[in-house]
Amino acid sequence: MSLVQVEGLSLKYGGRTVLSHVSLRVDPGEIVTIVGPNGSGKTSLLRAIIGAVQPSIGRVIKSDGVKLGYVPQKLHIDETLPMTVSRFLKLPGGVSATDIARALAQAGVPDLATAQLSQLSGGQFQRALLARALIGKPDLLLLDEATQGLDQRGSASFYQQIETVRKNTGCAVLMISHELHVVMSASDRVICLNGHVCCEGTPAVVASAPEYRALFGTGTGGALALYRHEHDHGHDHGPNPDHHHNDTNHDHPEAAE
């Protein structure tokens, strides 16, 4: 039984078709990544899944009692709104102090409970958002470009945290990202979206699909090379065979560059 199933979903904003006939499903425990160029409808798809927009055609089926945790693309906290991290995690209510401590620990920021949201760094803020998404013990975590505005090290460690969360809680993850090489390596499945589903499959399948190449072209050649470099350990004892095997970051391919 899939946690969430999207069937033939089409979305229109003021006459403009953003998504047409998109179908996908997310099963328990898997990490699915949606990649696609700007304006390809990635965010709209996620918003349709959480129920923020109604599909024009098609439907979103959630399995009974499935709990979603959502990390939005960007969240502007107005300076005029005083808010500690722990108060933020209590919204909209019904959580205990133990829940807060657990969620903050899972998000990798156990000491932030009393900090003001407006004074967090970009990375801390994203982790506070992650903690809030985790507090209801979700079955499915939805991340919309959760590392926007973080530097490479910051986003690498953020995605590592996501993998740790999945390992510890067993929740499924559906995420959107621009950082192809980072997220694709961490995904079980990749869906390439451009208004419709261009191609999908394991990261290796998608990376070599002609539809994917047509969208991302040569601009990501380096990223793809890196991605393969990190994961196809069997084949490339090329010009510098020792390089990545001695790499201290070997277990953290995202931080390697």
Binding site: R47, I50, G51, A52, L68, G69, Y70, P72, L75, I77, L81, M83, F88, L91, P92, G93, R132, L142
Partner: peptide, 19 residues
């Protein structure tokens, strides 16, 4: 109060919480 506060923070977060 709580629902208003959540919606004030972010409309999508509110939707995700069923508000």
């Amino acid at each position: 109060w709580s629902a208003l506060l959540t919606s004030t923070l972010n409309a999508d977060l509110a939707h995700a919480s069923g508000i």
